[in-house]
């Protein structure tokens, strides 16, 4: 793919402390988190390079203090980075002046916050219309647009409520509506569902997937919940102590953890629910003409979804078909069963 990435970060550093720039220039590169801490600095982001493609959903996963919120605030320049470059649609955002930055946020970016960040003195409608008001849209137009998004997130009828009169889930819907009001191309979500009850969280995730299907934004989604990450992500970046440990698709993270830290996360995960037929599939060329009779399985089914078939059907190799029904490879029954039941000891 040669298309320009929407966000491109190169060797980004963010240090907190008395004089980060000077301290950074004394670094050799590759200092550990602890060593930086001993010098009186906190390494929020440590030498991160990554790209987010158009329409992609990148989930940044990490425990609290791992620097994931800091990273996303660097992307939106709520934090000034200490070193490195961040380009948004090819534009180095560190070079933008105040006006340019405000314009970027008014036209291109939306953000959702963990504790909602709603303005307590404004109604739902006024909160949602806030970004439109900031960029000076006239009252009639912004009201129309705000009502549209409120409808979209399912809060119609509550336009005149104040945030404190709403439940947590409803408040976050307002937060989501606000971030969508300006029709941003890039959507940042900072642990949007972490403050909600488990049941509501699930419901909001579904809602979120529905919205994404509809809108197809470029998304950077922060979470500390591995299940949530697996559920939503196109790619996952796992962070620890400010550095990215591994950035990969969910099934590759589960099947092939690159570091001890990532492996620990994946241990508890039921792999069969994440791994799809496609990722265990062997190319037609490598099958060496092994027989592949019978009905094919869909390439985007998880092994868990295929479990019954795998146990009942004795074929050694299943043909795998893509969306259009074209056979694109074969799935060894044994390797699929290994994922489903764990490898034989």
């Amino acid at each position: 793919m040669t298309a320009q990435p929407v966000i491109a970060a190169r060797n980004v550093w963010k240090l907190f402390g008395p004089d980060p720039k000077r301290y950074f220039s004394s670094l050799q590169g590759g200092e550990s988190f602890e060593k930086i801490q001993a010098a009186g600095y906190i390494a929020g982001v440590r030498d991160v390079s990554l790209e987010v493609a158009k329409g992609e959903m990148l989930v940044v996963m990490g425990l609290s203090g791992s620097g994931k919120s800091t990273l996303v605030r660097c992307f939106s320049r709520l934090h000034e980075i200490t070193a490195g470059t961040i380009e948004v649609e090819g534009q180095d955002i560190a070079k933008l002046d105040e006006r340019g930055l405000i314009e970027l946020r008014r036209r291109k970016m939306g953000m959702v916050f963990q504790s909602f960040g709603l303005l307590p003195h404004r109604t739902v409608l006024e909160n949602v219309a806030f970004p439109l008001e900031m960029r000076g849209q006239d009252r009639h137009e912004r009201r129309k647009r705000a009502l549209e998004v409120i409808e979209l997130v399912g809060l119609a009828g509550r336009e005149e409520y104040f945030p404190r009169e709403l439940s947590g889930g409803q408040q976050q819907r307002v937060g989501i509506a606000r971030s969508l009001a300006i029709e941003p191309d890039i959507w940042f979500l900072d642990e949007p569902f972490s403050a909600l009850d488990p049941l509501i969280r699930r419901e909001m995730q579904d809602e979120f997937l529905r919205l994404q299907e509809l809108l197809g934004k470029t998304i950077v989604f922060i979470t500390h919940d591995f299940d949530e990450a697996l559920r939503l992500a196109d790619r996952i970046a796992i962070m620890k102590d400010g550095a990215v440990e591994q950035i990969d698709t969910p099934d590759r993270i589960v099947m092939d953890p690159q570091t001890e830290y990532v492996r620990k996360f994946t241990e508890e995960i039921e792999k069969s629910r994440v791994v799809m037929a496609e990722s265990l599939m062997i190319d037609l060329a490598q099958l060496n003409g092994q027989s592949m009779a019978g009905d094919p399985v869909k390439s985007n089914r998880t092994i868990h979804e295929l479990a019954r078939l795998l146990i009942n059907d004795q074929r050694p190799v299943f043909p795998v078909a893509d969306e259009s029904g074209q056979i694109i490879g074969g799935l060894h029954r044994q390797s699929a069963l290994d994922v489903l039941l764990g490898e034989e000891k």
């Binding site: 709520l78 953000m111 916050f113 504790s115 960040g117 709603l118 303005l119 900031m134």
Partner: peptide, 18 residues
Amino acid sequence: VSSEVVDAGYMSGSSRWQ
């Protein structure tokens, strides 16, 4: 003032006066 409210304000493209 909660830092998230402040961030939300900036992300909505508020100028300093706003």
